[in-house]
C-alpha cells in the first residue's frame, strides 16, 4: 500500500479548495468585465434615463418602508443598550453621541445595505435570471437593444445612488428614534443628549458613512446583476443564483466594511 495513502483526503481537500478559489477568481474577473462593459455605456447613446428612474423606484422607493422601520428600531434598541452600559459609568449624557456615532459610522450603511440586498437585490437577480431563462435577454439582443446597457447599467447606477439616500434616511430616523427612547423614556437630559451628539460627530464620521454607503450600493448592483446575468438558464439555476447573490453580497458587504473602517478610522 502507498505509504502516503493517508494523505489522500488532504490532497483532495486542497485540490477542492484550490479549484473553488480559481472559480472565485474567475467569477470576480467575469463580474468586473460585465460591469465595466455595462458602465462603458453610461455616457453613450441611447441614454437610459427612463430605465434608471424605474430602477431608482424599485430600489429606493420600494425599500423606503423597510428602511424606516429598521432605522427606527435600530435607534431605539441602541438607546436602550447604550443606556444600560453607560449608566454603569454614570455617563448617560454620552448616550446621544453613542447612538448617533454607531448609526452614522456603522449600522446605517451596513443594515441599510442588508435591507436593500434582501428587498431589492434578490429581486434584481431573480428578475434578470428569469429574463435569461425565458430568452428575454436574447430577444432584446435580436431587437438591437444591448441588454448590458438596458438591463445591467441602470440597476448598478440606481443601486449606487439609492443606497446612500436610503442610508441618510435610515440615519436620521434612527437618531430621532434614539432621542425619543433616550430622552422621553429613559429620562436622559435632552440638552446633554443633543449637545454631546453634536460635539462628538465630525465631518469625518459622516464622510466615512457616505463612502461606505456608496461603495456598498455599487457592490450590491454589480453582484446582484452579475449573478442574475450568469445564472444557469433553468428554474433551479435562477433560484440558486438568487440565494447565492444574497449570501455573497451580504458577506461581501461585511468584509469590505471592515476594510473601509480600517481606512477611515
Amino acid at each position: 500500500m502507498n505509504p502516503t495513502g493517508f494523505l489522500t483526503p488532504f490532497f483532495a481537500f486542497f485540490g477542492r479548495l484550490g479549484r473553488r478559489f480559481l472559480m472565485f477568481l474567475q467569477a470576480m474577473g467575469d463580474a468586473t468585465v460585465l460591469s465595466a462593459n455595462a458602465l462603458s455605456h453610461l455616457l453613450r447613446r441611447p441614454w437610459q434615463g427612463r430605465h434608471f428612474v424605474m430602477q431608482l423606484h424599485a430600489l429606493g422607493v420600494d425599500s423606503l418602508v423597510i428602511i424606516i422601520i429598521t432605522g427606527a428600531f435600530t435607534g431605539m434598541v441602541l438607546a436602550l443598550q447604550g443606556y444600560y452600559t453607560l449608566a454603569k459609568f454614570g455617563s448617560e449624557s454620552l448616550l446621544g453621541a453613542g447612538v448617533a456615532l454607531s448609526i452614522i459610522r456603522e449600522l446605517g450603511p451596513v443594515l441599510g445595505a442588508f435591507m436593500v440586498i434582501g428587498r431589492a437585490g434578490s429581486s434584481i437577480t431573480a428578475e434578470i435570471g428569469i429574463m435569461r431563462v425565458t430568452e428575454q435577454l436574447d430577444a432584446l439582443q435580436m431587437m438591437a437593444v444591448n441588454p448590458k446597457a438596458r438591463i445591467i447599467l441602470p440597476r448598478i447606477v440606481a443601486a449606487t445612488i439609492a443606497l446612500p439616500l436610503l442610508v441618510a434616511i435610515f440615519d436620521v430616523i434612527g437618531i430621532a428614534a434614539g432621542y425619543l427612547v433616550g430622552v422621553e423614556l429613559l429620562g436622559v437630559n435632552p440638552g446633554a443628549y443633543v449637545a454631546e451628539m453634536m460635539a462628538k460627530i465630525t465631518a469625518h464620521d459622516l464622510n466615512g458613512g457616505w463612502v461606505k454607503a456608496i461603495v456598498f450600493g455599487f457592490m450590491i448592483g454589480v453582484i446582484c446583476t452579475f449573478m442574475g446575468y450568469r445564472s444557469e438558464p433553468t428554474t433551479e439555476g435562477v433560484a440558486r443564483a438568487t440565494t447565492q447573490a444574497v449570501v455573497i453580497a451580504s458577506v461581501g458587504v461585511l468584509m469590505v466594511d471592515y476594510i473601509l473602517t480600517s481606512f477611515f478610522l
Binding site: T134, E135, D138, A139, L140, M142
Partner: peptide, 10 residues
Amino acid sequence: MVFQYSALLN
C-alpha cells in the same frame, strides 16, 4: 425572431 418560449418582455 420568434423564440421558443415567446420571450415577451414581462
